[in-house]
Design a protein around this nucleic acid. Structure first.
Length: 214
DNA sequence: GTTAGGATGATCT
DNA sequence: GATCATCCTAACA
């Protein structure tokens, strides 16, 4: 049954690869957030790769700190950061351990639990808005720093707030890539943003805009 | 349809 | 003190 194959959980080896290999492979996968009110399931449509301490665009570029410590740990864990004084963004740590690679989840299609997501995304106008953009995605999934470091693959019978299912394969011809959003400097030249072409939930591209000084 | 500006606080220099 | 891996609203075309 196709339906069963789609719901097959992936395992940690999925993340124990270079981040540029993992990022496009995440498209079409189903990321599950278990809340106390029930599951919210997201089909991933847009991601960005951050290549670790060698990448000027990465939080890990200037070394390990209290905030980014999770990035330097083992793959398959969740890295959550707080930014712009209001928003959270959700990343998945990729191996090999110590390289501090991570993939930012930028957008997706809510396929289960849209009612739960809508309660948190009160400004959303259409279903495609619910997780269209990294901070919207984190809001819709009720993710904050308290979940930083969560293991997507905990030991047997241990509860985890997250899961990752195989989902539906994406035709490689429909995967597009381009510059990362909101990343300036040298890191801006790397085309490490990946998305599914023509998908309505993909966030609109905005170039990095340096703050005007006065 | 597009764009400019403000919100708001942790983090790092 | 400046910088953010952003979002929303208001104003304009």
């Amino acid at each position: 049954m196709i339906a069963i194959a789609q719901r097959t959980p992936l395992d940690r080896s999925f993340f124990d690869r270079p981040v540029l290999e993992v990022a496009p492979d995440l498209l079409g996968r189903i990321f599950v957030r278990h809340t106390e009110h029930g599951p919210i399931e997201l089909r991933l449509t847009e991601v960005e790769a951050y290549a670790g301490f060698t990448d000027p665009g990465s939080h890990a570029y200037r070394g390990r700190t209290a905030r980014n410590a999770v990035m330097f740990g083992p793959p398959g864990h969740v890295y959550v950061y707080f930014t712009y004084g209001m928003w959270h963004c959700l990343n998945l740590v990729c191996g090999p351990e110590g390289t501090a690679g991570a993939v930012l989840l930028r957008a997706g299609e809510i396929i289960t639990g849209a009612d739960l997501a809508r309660k948190r995304r009160t400004t959303s106008r259409r279903p495609a808005d619910l997780a269209q953009g990294p901070a919207r995605l984190a809001t819709a999934l009720d993710v904050d720093r308290s979940l930083d470091g969560s293991d997507i693959f905990p030991p047997e019978s241990t509860a985890s707030p997250f899961r990752l299912l195989a989902g539906t394969p994406v035709d490689p011809a429909t995967i597009r890539n381009g510059p990362r959003t909101g990343v300036g400097g040298e890191g801006a030249t790397h085309p490490w943003r990946f998305w599914i072409e023509h998908d309505p939930t993909v966030s609109s591209y905005r170039a990095h805009t340096p703050k005007k000084r006065r």
